[in-house]
Design a binder for these strands. Structure first.
Length: 285
DNA sequence: AAGTAATCCTGATCGC
DNA sequence: TGCGATCAGGATTACT
């Protein structure tokens, strides 16, 4: 959704100025901020791309891209030049678009888990002829990608010796799924978060993948509208999430399906929300 | 080698 | 009113 909102604003636009307010937001840029500014200033952007939670904007005529990761709290805001900046703005790009004129792209991030970087584009191992930033090369395709290979994913699950939620969150296996999406898809599929992948039947795995696609698709559809109001949000928390969460954050509330209170457990240093009646560990028969 | 735990990071919120 | 403790989870790292 961020990508589609950003595309009309930045594609074909040139970077006129770069301001870095907090160098920690350049954690993934492997050189000083002066280098980031030098390489970005004057660059002309091609169309933004995405893989999993990584977004990048290729730089025209160079085998490089501006890589953006939003972390948990990151946002990309489109602003008129001169508009007040959000207090938590870490990096600000002054843009010049050939048709729309001047525009500002602000990278806002509270917790600084997100980042911007200039990175080299390298051949994508899984897509012949395509390129991705070097730091994105190990990220798998996401399940909404037409090239996502279902059979291969199921085979990888069967081969693995771990819990299903761990696998869903492993971006080298399947990308784009965060903690919220994982809990929601597992709830919809009636699968316990720690169900061993090797003991998940093929039909249940199919159900799960279908639900993952549904959840991701809904989120994209609701968040990814237009770019009308200078405000291009992005975070996963608006729209869809505010009113249609069945499990995530619902601990203590009745399961929408069976009425049993949703439980929250610590898992992988984060919360896991599930219904203890609908989502049980199952041994393969 | 594969699986897992620890780590980073700060603003909002809560309790006292 | 102020202060400290608590909480949130992406991806990488450092282990076992």
């Amino acid at each position: 959704m961020v990508r589609s909102g950003l595309a009309p604003a930045v594609t074909g636009a040139t970077v006129a100025s770069v301001e870095v307010f907090d160098e920690r937001s350049l954690r993934r840029h492997d050189a000083p901020s002066e280098d980031f500014i030098d390489r970005l200033t004057g660059a002309r952007f091609d169309e933004p791309r995405r893989r999993g939670k990584f977004l990048w904007i290729p730089i025209a005529g160079r085998s490089q891209a501006l890589v953006i990761h939003l972390g948990m709290s990151g946002q990309v805001l489109l602003r008129e030049p001169g508009a007040p900046r959000d207090r938590l703005t870490r990096i600000s790009l002054g843009m010049e678009h050939p048709e729309h004129g001047p525009l500002r792209v602000d990278f806002v991030d509270q917790r600084i888990f997100g980042s911007m970087a200039i990175d080299d584009l390298v051949a994508a191992a899984d897509v012949p002829g395509d390129t991705v930033p070097a730091q994105v090369a190990h990220i798998a395709r996401d399940p909404l990608d037409a090239g996502f290979d279902d059979a291969r994913f199921f085979a990888a699950l069967a081969r693995r010796n771990t819990g299903i939620k761990r696998a869903l969150l492993d971006q080298t296996l399947i990308s784009g799924i965060g903690n919220i999406y994982a809990d929601e898809a597992l709830w919809a599929s009636r699968i316990h978060y720690d169900q061993p992948t090797g003991e998940l039947s093929r039909p249940r795995a199919r159900t799960l993948l279908a639900q993952v696609r549904l959840v991701l698709g809904k989120a994209l559809a609701e968040g990814g509208t237009s770019f009308d109001a200078q405000y291009l949000n992005v975070n996963g928390e608006s729209g869809y999430f505010s009113h249609s969460l069945n499990a995530y954050g619902q601990q203590g509330n009745p399961c929408p399906r069976c009425g049993r209170p949703i439980v929250r457990e610590q898992f992988m240093n984060r919360g896991s929300h599930f219904c203890p009646r609908c989502q049980r560990l199952v041994a393969r028969r």
